[in-house]
Design a protein around this nucleic acid. Structure first.
Lengths: 372, 372
DNA sequence: TATCGGATTGTTGCCGGTAACATGGCGGTG
DNA sequence: CACCGCCATGTTACCGGCAACAATCCGATA
């Protein structure tokens, strides 16, 4: 917002007025008297609990931290006081003093899309189970300055770690440039080396191509996702590997951007002869668009051309025709990302057990190759 | 997790081991010497900045808070020091002392659905613009205990406010029961009184019904969303009002749950005679399912039956046939929710300017009533 | 029964920032 | 030229929790 200084939080900040308002300080009381009046709206602190229990605040802390060496009688009084006051630790204060936080910054863009939002869902659930909270930061990938600003802002939020729910090359670069001091974990699908393909995202493509080959298809078209997404590259690579490994023919890779529109336009732009009897789209939306484009060309699915997707979004089973696709468990991916980050935070060995169950779901959009 | 005590953070907590690890304390130095060594990995504090500028830390704070009465020469030194050290305020410490935080707790469930995730997207963007961060808390609506636990947990996170991205009756009840001390804002679509319909979600239904009536349709079926969602009730109500106001006939309201499956099953379960020539679904997914069910009955869309949705999800333009629907701007809804909450936080008058541009988008799923 | 040592518990100080209060310096006035 | 008052800045205290260190307490041993 303020191009000529890096300290953009200064006088241009949100809470900066001439008035320096602030909340009224609580009247100065000695530490001993300041216990909350019962009806006080302020949540109780360990000092309140300590006073109620007739012990020192440190004893309360010890109990809370799980320290064993507390005499049963004392412990009981503490427990009773905690319960009576319904004490909940103030995590802000705790973070300040321990230097550890329980927040994970989740970078995302296009969270409105099926994959990212389900990854977020899974990640949020996994984080919560581990006692963490996900702070969502949406990046505007179209504006490099805004990305830098957002990433800079992350630094003041004392996060336990940062993860990218979905990674694109731009995001990867921006994150590397930001040089975070906390652990960073790049999620989504990482780039894979060829040998790993068969175990990872590629797991489904062999099955998918086998399915099509079993129906007599010999020549295929692929509609790819945007090349800046590792996930898209992986899928394209897996497609090409699977086709080549079976001695079949790929008639081409059409560029797409995950949207139904791009799938439609890619097919609409093809010449008279498709050169293939089956279209393997890198996600369900593009498959949907492709099917519409085929129909508009007067071709029937699967009568003339078979079409497949990837993801198995809930709607895919109700497309016209219902879509044959590879089911991807995004929630599991989200969990995996969080697990990976937490391992890094705790200094445990990286888990890296990403096995996105990519399962073939056969529906009506694939059928026998036409008699020609 | 621990049913017999409300203080479930105690010895069962995540970071509680016998060891009481904690990070190593920084060696005890006097306040004056503890300035960060240049290569220190700890971010600079106002004390570091103050030392670098040769002023007291309070002067630095004053500058940061926008205080005017600083002599230009002093101010310059502070600015220079801030820039040199690339200082960023520690928001945790700031929150602790001010008692104000800049985090908003966003409650959600089913964030994987189009509406909720786009609302989240808009809300996150709006929050960030206002200097806030969205903490996402996903509720497992199927487990009342887990809901209570989650809501309790919110209390220790010192949030500036809490908002429900989408509201269902269960969520509303749970939130009311939690008795938060911070502002709470229920988003999604609130229940509306009949008079407001025409200005709110209802805005599109008159246009939609006009469109269908103009094509000759006189009798309609509605596929509703789950009755526990205010948004679903609003849409059903708006549908019924619009139909009744035109002297047309509603042949029935079928229950759905937002999914394509429910739309499909609702139509599949109908008797031989639909009793209507147009189906108005409460969202696009259910419309999609309905279209498939119609086709399986041997009915063509729009030849025999016209179908409409609500939302205009990106895929809707590529359904077979492309869907006539009401476009809803969920991102704007998200922004509105955040604005409403921020107004409440700041004690400003409630804005309540929810005008979800619900715009009719005519595509190919609606057509003239069949000649009979 | 006095002493010793580990087990318990209390006291003090710090995290990084902000607010209240205190102080030094300057100019203006009588 | 002394005094007053305001301006600019410094000093101290505190938010709520945690940890180092200090001070008790208790039982067991000599």
């Amino acid at each position: 917002m303020d191009p000529h200084t890096t300290v953009d939080d200064a006088p241009t900040g949100d809470d900066v007025g001439g008035e320096l308002p602030g909340r009224p300080r609580r009247p100065a009381l000695s530490t001993l008297q300041r216990a909350s009046a019962p009806g006080s709206d302020k949540p109780p602190t360990i000092y309140d609990v300590a006073k109620a229990a007739g012990v020192s605040h440190q004893t309360v802390t010890r109990y809370l931290r799980g320290y064993e060496g507390i005499r049963p009688a004392t412990r009981e009084r503490v427990v009773a006081a905690l319960e009576e006051l319904d004490y909940r630790p103030n995590l802000t204060a705790r973070s300040l003093t321990t230097g550890r936080s329980h927040r994970i910054g989740a970078l995302t863009h296009e969270i409105d899309k099926h994959g990212p939002s389900n990854i977020a869902q899974g990640a949020a659930a996994a984080a919560r189970r581990a006692g963490y909270v996900l702070d969502i930061f949406t990046l505007d990938m179209s504006d490099p300055r805004s990305i830098r600003d957002t990433l800079k802002m992350l630094r003041q939020h004392d996060l336990a770690g940062i993860l990218a729910l979905t990674s694109t090359d731009e995001m990867t670069r921006a994150i590397e440039a930001a040089k975070f001091t906390v652990p960073v974990y790049l999620g989504g699908e990482p780039d894979e080396t060829p040998t790993e393909h068969s175990e990872l995202t590629g797991i489904g493509f062999p099955a998918l191509v086998d399915h099509l080959a079993g129906l007599g298809h010999r020549s295929f078209l692929h509609i790819a996702g945007p090349a800046t997404w590792p996930a898209a590259r992986n899928r394209t690579q897996a497609y090409e590997d699977a086709v080549a490994a079976r001695g079949l023919r790929s008639a081409g890779v059409l560029p797409g951007d995950w949207t139904a529109r791009s799938g439609h336009d890619a097919v609409a732009a093809l010449g008279e002869d498709l050169g293939a009897t089956a279209i393997v789209a890198a996600n369900d939306q593009m498959a949907l668009g492709a099917m519409l484009a085929l129909r508009r060309r007067g071709l029937s699915v699967p009568g003339d051309v078979s079409v497949t997707g990837v993801d198995d979004i809930p709607d895919a089973a109700y497309f016209a025709p219902p879509l044959t696709t590879l089911r991807v468990d995004f929630a599991a991916q989200g969990r995996n990302i969080v697990d990976g980050l937490l391992a890094q935070i705790d200094g445990r060995p990286p888990v890296r057990s990403i096995t996105p169950h990519s399962e073939l779901v056969v529906r009506e959009s694939t059928g026998p190759v036409p008699a020609a």
